[in-house]
Design a binder for these strands. Structure first.
Lengths: 220, 220
DNA sequence: GATATTTGCTACTGTCGGGTAGATAGACCT
DNA sequence: AGGTCTATCTACCCGACAGTAGCAAATATC
């Protein structure tokens, strides 16, 4: 998970006089691991039961710890949600960037983008779903930060679409609006895919690629 | 709003010995009106703040009444949610049925379906959005009833797609899966359209029609 | 105009859950 | 061994909110 800016916790590690800083480093690695585990369990419960309906006691129970344990790694409940939502788009955004880094025609790139992002969404469904469903529950500041990330995503897709149109590969009316439909196709996967359900991940990803390519293709 | 089965309230109107039943009828009309108003305000608040985060006191305040007033028309909070969600899909389903009643080629019918349903979704966004977002919070029984309605919707779309394919108008792999993508396009409108936003309702509806037709069209 | 019925309100209860203060147990140091 | 520090827990607080009991005002009935 990239882009994990080390937010300060309640009890910051002092990092005082130790000449060898190895032990201190290990400690902070352990702390980071605990934070990840908290988020992991929280995301499962938020996904299954919703943010408001999930209690921190329930999250603690999943980890076989108690509520104050969580509070020594996160300030409050909404910080958990914020981190989950951010992970959600951050994952998608990173997948998008990676796909765009590979060069090729706009058509090839767009296929690559949908393929990679769709797979990431399926693999990390609970983060994405929670993000899509619980945006309203975010603190205003976090909501803004996360909307910005989302906006980056849409802008980059729109830029790719524009490039494809200029090269005569795609045809559509308005790039921003079309990018939003592409985003819709991807989001829909998170709402609808169910592991072990009627359709396989591969089928869903292939469908998504096919749908997106049809949306932007010349001569319908 | 069709399909409004008069659920019994806490204090049922006795409807006893009156020979002329006019006055009693008026009374129940008034009661039905009050129920509708409660749902209307509740849907606004659920849409804006989420189901769990909305208090019944807040709903009551919007109506300039008090909480016990609501409890004399609905059994509990989750009954409000259930009615809102049901209204959500019921509206879509009714629009679908109306569109299917008009005859024409599968292509014409599908365009009609998307046009009408998309408009209904935009006009009743808060019901649809709440339904999509808060399904998890429904009582199990209500959830099942509402999933059945949703399933009807998807089945009818799938049937139309199959008909179009048989007539050589459409091309796709699997009708059920394609119907779900069509449903996705429509749902996406509810999540994303914003009245007075950057794009008009008409633009969004036209886009939706165009996207759906591209998804099912022969030769991409 | 007295009485019954309906309708909404005031005022309450009980519970749940986010958040915290302070204790305890282990690790670590010297 | 005694002292310090850190991580986690026990035990609590308090506010919010779903839901209710019972009253009061309005309205209908005779």
């Amino acid at each position: 998970m990239p882009g994990q800016q080390g937010q300060e916790r309640k009890r910051p590690v002092p990092e005082r006089q130790s000449v060898t800083r190895k032990p201190t480093q290990l400690k902070s690695e352990v702390a980071a691991y605990k934070r990840r585990r908290i988020i992991e369990e929280a995301s499962h419960l938020f996904f299954a039961n919703g943010y408001e309906a999930t209690t921190l006691d329930a999250v603690a129970e999943q980890l076989h710890v108690t509520k104050p344990f969580i509070y020594s790694y996160y300030r409050n409940k909404s910080e958990l949600l914020s981190e989950i939502c951010q992970t959600g788009i951050q994952l998608s955004l990173t997948a998008l960037d990676e796909a765009l880094a590979v060069d090729g025609t706009a058509t090839e790139q767009l296929k690559m983008v949908v393929d990679r992002v769709a797979r990431i969404i399926i693999e990390n469904q609970r983060y994405i779903s929670v993000y899509l469903r619980e945006e309203k529950s975010l603190d205003p500041d976090d909501a803004r930060r996360i909307r910005d990330l989302r906006h980056q995503f849409d802008s980059q897709v729109a830029a790719l679409l524009t490039k494809g149109k200029e090269h005569g590969e795609f045809a559509f009316d308005d790039a921003s609006r079309t990018a939003i439909w592409v985003g819709g196709v991807l989001s829909w996967i998170a709402n609808w895919y169910h592991e072990g359900g009627r359709w396989s991940a591969t089928e869903v990803v292939m469908d998504a690629i096919s749908v997106v390519m049809k949306i932007v293709a010349k001569r319908a």
